[in-house]
Deep mutational scan, measured.
Amino acid sequence: WVPTKREEKYGVAFYNYDARGADELSLQIGDTVHILETYEGWYRGYTLRKKSKKGIFPASYIHLKE
């Protein structure tokens, strides 16, 4: 896992994603996520609506905010 280059990196989910394991994070369309790390097509972070739950999710489900 590699920390993100920018201190504040955010994105928005444009697909729903159902977590398949305890380390994964479920997403709903429109969720804003804070991205902490990246690795081979995956991000690690949390949604702003539930900051206490961190997990991994596919990068392809996220539109990055500039």
Rank of each mutant, 00 (worst) to 15 (best):
L27V: 02
K54W: 10
A59H: 05
E24A: 04
G30P: 00
V33T: 00
G45P: 01
G11C: 09
K65R: 12
H34C: 15
V2R: 14
R44I: 07
I35V: 05
I35G: 01
R44E: 04
K65I: 15
V2K: 13
S52C: 14
Y46A: 01
L27Q: 02
W42V: 00
D31R: 03
F14K: 15
K65N: 10
W1A: 08
S26C: 08
R6I: 12
G11E: 04
Y39V: 07
L25Y: 03
E8T: 09
T4Q: 09
I56N: 04
K54C: 14
R49M: 10
S26Y: 05
G45D: 01
L48E: 12
Y10A: 03
K9G: 06
N16R: 12
E7W: 14
W42S: 00
E40G: 13
L36K: 01
A22K: 10
S60M: 14
K51C: 15
V12W: 07
E66Y: 13
R49A: 13
V2I: 13
D23P: 04
Y61F: 10
S26W: 05
T32Y: 15
K54V: 15
Y15C: 15
R49G: 14
L36R: 01
K9H: 09
G21V: 05
G45T: 01
V2C: 11
L25G: 00
E66F: 10
G30L: 01
W42M: 01
D23L: 07
E24M: 03
L27D: 00
L36Y: 06
K50D: 15
Y17A: 01
W42C: 06
W1L: 08
N16A: 13
E40C: 12
F14A: 14
D31M: 07
A13Y: 02
K5H: 11
V12P: 02
L27I: 06
G11H: 03
D18V: 14
K51D: 10
E40L: 11
S60W: 06
Y61Q: 04
K54D: 05
S52L: 07
L25N: 01
Y10H: 09
Y43T: 00
Q28I: 12
H63R: 14
P3Y: 06
E7I: 10
T47V: 15
V33R: 02
S60Y: 07
K51G: 10
P3T: 08
F57E: 00
D23N: 10
G11Y: 04
G30K: 01
K51I: 10
F57T: 01
T47L: 15
A19H: 01
P3M: 03
I29E: 07
L25M: 04
F57D: 02
Q28F: 08
I62P: 00
Y46P: 01
E7K: 10
N16C: 11
N16P: 12
R44C: 14
K5I: 09
I29G: 02
G30V: 04
S52H: 13
E7V: 10
W42H: 01
T32K: 12
R49F: 11
N16E: 08
L25A: 01
V33C: 04
Y61E: 01
L48M: 12
K5M: 10
K50I: 10
R49W: 11
E37I: 11
S52F: 13
E40Y: 05
S26G: 04
L27G: 02
G30C: 08
F14T: 14
Y15D: 15
Y15A: 15
H34A: 13
T4P: 10
K9F: 09
G30M: 07
I56H: 03
R44N: 02
L25Q: 00
G21C: 12
E24Y: 06
T38D: 05
N16M: 06
R49P: 12
E66R: 12
V2Y: 09
Y15L: 15
K53R: 10
R20S: 07
Y46F: 06
Y46T: 03
R49V: 09
L48Q: 03
Y61D: 01
E24N: 02
V2W: 11
A19K: 03
N16I: 06
D31I: 06
V33F: 02
L36E: 07
G55A: 02
L64F: 09
Y61L: 12
T32L: 15
S26Q: 06
W1Q: 06
R44A: 04
K53Q: 13
A19E: 03
F57H: 02
V2L: 13
A59S: 13
E7C: 14
Y10I: 11
P3H: 04
L36P: 01
Y43K: 00
V12M: 06
E24I: 05
R49L: 08
T4A: 15
S52I: 08
E8I: 12
G41A: 07
Y39W: 12
H34P: 00
G11I: 06
K50N: 15
E8F: 12
E37R: 03
L27S: 03
